[in-house]
Structures are given as C-alpha cells and as structure tokens.
C-alpha cells in the first residue's frame, strides 16, 4: 500500500468518529498498545526532546525499505507517533522524502504538530525524513 493510501485509510477511520472524545480515545488506545520500539533503542541518541513530552525514534533499512520504530512517554503523543510509523514505515527513502503527510490536517489533529505544542512530534517527523535522505544518499 502506498503512503497516500495509508493516509486515506486513516482519514476514513477518523471520519467514523462522532466527536473529539472518540478520536482521542482511539489515539489513547494506540498509545497504550504494545511498545513500538525495542528497549535497546531507547537511547539518548534516539531521543527527541520536546518541552512537554519526549519521543524515541529508530530507523533501519531492510530490503530497500525503511522500518521505523518509535515511542513516547505521553500516551497521546505515542498515539500520534503510532500513526506516523504506520504511514511511513516499510516504504522506500524516495517515497518517504516525497510524502506530504496531510492526513494530520484532514483528521483534525494539526494542533499536535504546531511548533508551540513542543511534544517532539514535529522534530520526529523531521528526523524520519532526514533519515530517509541519509539512506538515499548512502545507497
């Protein structure tokens, strides 16, 4: 499935929610799900510090595709992290670099990506793309 197709899938899922409570409950459920990252990758190097919450992100290249794993100390942030991983993981560096990620706006959660939110998400997305650029140059 392409990045865009996954984005559309998420937009469809969110359209079923009737109010913000259901939306956030879904994010919280995602956040509560199993750890998204191997404990050994929760290192200082992989830490993206936000003013409010922190994010850990690790990437590796497998068969020409990048696999991301990530985690956060805040559940709602972790839910957002899970969505990002779902959208971007298992795609080629090229696809990731060119992704627009406008699903966040479509599901009405843009405020989590505003710089003032300082939850580490904006920096994480930037890092995901930077990793993709690095893998592309290496290959």
């Amino acid at each position: 499935m392409s990045i865009e197709a996954t984005e559309n899938e998420i937009v469809d899922e969110f359209e079923m929610f009737e109010d913000w409570i259901q939306k956030y409950e879904y994010l919280i459920d995602l956040g509560k799900s199993l750890p998204l990252i191997d404990e050994k990758y929760k290192t200082e190097d992989n830490l993206i510090k936000g003013c409010q919450s922190q994010v850990w992100m690790h990437s590796e290249l497998k068969d020409g595709k990048i696999v991301y794993t990530a985690d956060s100390d805040a559940i709602i942030t972790k839910g957002m992290v899970a969505l990002m991983v779902r959208v971007l993981s298992n795609h080629s560096p090229e696809e990731i670099i060119n992704s627009k990620l406008d699903f966040v706006e479509k599901i009405g959660l843009t405020k989590h990506l505003s710089p003032t939110r300082s939850n580490g998400l904006v920096s994480m997305i930037k890092q995901m793309k930077l990793d993709a650029v690095a893998y592309k140059i290496k290959n």
Partner: peptide
C-alpha cells in the same frame, strides 16, 4: 501513572486552560 501532557491535552479539549510541564 499519567503524563501531565496527556491530562493537559484532554483538559484543553474541555475548554480548561492549565499549564503542564516543568
């Protein structure tokens, strides 16, 4: 067991402005 950021985010949805963090 809960992160201040998560609580602050939900309270904000309810129109309640508190500060969270350090």
């Amino acid at each position: 067991g809960l992160h201040p950021f998560d609580i602050g985010t939900i309270l904000d949805q309810l129109g309640i402005a508190v500060r969270t963090g350090h």
